[in-house]
Nucleic acid binder design. Structure first.
Lengths: 193, 193
DNA sequence: GAATAACCAGACCCGTAGTCTCGATATTCG
DNA sequence: CGAATATCGAGACTACGGGTCTGGTTATTC
């Protein structure tokens, strides 16, 4: 048995919750570690004992707080599945989580390590799910077997990503349908079965 | 005639050049104003006399250094025009300019004012050109007249933007062709003429 | 030659990420 | 119980960057 005082799991949770709340609340400007510590009612040192940097805390808050937020339905209507999935992503991007994603993205632009972690822990899992669904569609004969998966995935998520990060136009759930509709002619198998 | 010493246009140019060079060189981490001042051989105060903030300097360096970098060819083959345009954008994103764009994007995520300026001075001009080209295609009967321009534009630039900012996969000029090919079935007028 | 405004150099202020110290509190083992 | 260990909170401290201010100098106009 390890000696010494036990780690306060509750404090850890308060840190992540406060981080999610503060960063996600759309407060203009960056959220400082001091603010997080104060909001979580925790000493700064306690944060740095368990996370290596401010950004690591935020990424954890993002991943933990989004664990089960973008499910991928699995029916035989793959197009409808994608629409439904995109709607959940859109809802996510318009929620506090979207704000946290933007913050992580910002950090990732000038810190390659953060970029790696962001991709590994947030981006790739969703993308892998989506790719698997495309592959399944090919098996079922619903999707052309000569598509370039990575290109199609970029085309699916790219529009959402662009609106989230550029903010040139709002992102509404109607876009799930519009994007799917725009892409499907190039994806659907013209000779199904 | 205004009294006093004239503004040193050359110093201004050195600032923008040094900024472009430093930020674009892919040096990991942020470039500080002190570094820019030193590289441009200019006093820090001289920079702040002509620009309101560090970010404003970088945005200026971006816009000035990219003025004529993404031309849009105009032939009767609109699809080919788009491919050519995308190739220039891809080349741009893979050049030092891409690094500067990422830096600006990062700042824009936590500063709405910067976001506005970035959109107005960098993003929208290219997008407007592109939209005009789409509209022309509709006039010529090459493009469906029921497309949602904004959705199509997002679909065109989204994949490039995603690869630049996420970096999950490399962005090569071959993507210009692939993206256009993937989108065109949903764009081209099925009954041309 | 006086007034003006830019220039360089560098001190200075302030806020933030991250470290360090210290005294208090849990927990385990003997 | 008491020694050893590891956490905790509080807050001082360092390092550094954005941005301001001061002061001495130089160019320009009247």
């Amino acid at each position: 048995m390890p000696r010494g005082r036990k780690r306060d799991e509750n404090a850890q949770k308060r840190v992540l919750d406060s981080t999610f709340e503060l960063v996600g609340s759309g407060t203009p400007g960056k959220v400082s570690i001091n603010e997080i510590a104060a909001a979580a009612d925790v000493a700064k040192q306690t944060i740095y004992r368990w996370w290596p940097s401010r950004t690591a805390v935020i990424l954890d808050a993002l991943v933990v707080g989004t664990m089960k937020a973008t499910p991928f339905p699995e029916t035989n209507d793959i197009k409808a599945d994608f629409e439904a999935h995109l709607r959940t992503v859109i809802r996510l991007f318009n929620s506090p989580t979207g704000q946290i994603v933007r913050e992580m993205l910002a950090e990732a632009q000038t810190d390659a390590t953060i970029g790696d972690e962001f991709r590994t822990r947030f981006w790739q899992p969703r993308r892998d799910l989506s790719r698997a669904r495309l592959e399944r569609g090919v098996e079922l004969g619903l999707i052309r077997n000569d598509i370039d998966y990575e290109i199609v995935l970029d085309a699916i998520y790219g529009p959402l990503w662009t609106r989230l990060t550029i903010g040139h136009l709002p992102l509404t759930s109607a876009h799930a349908t519009k994007i799917t509709a725009a892409l499907w002619p190039g994806i659907a198998d013209p000779n199904p079965g």
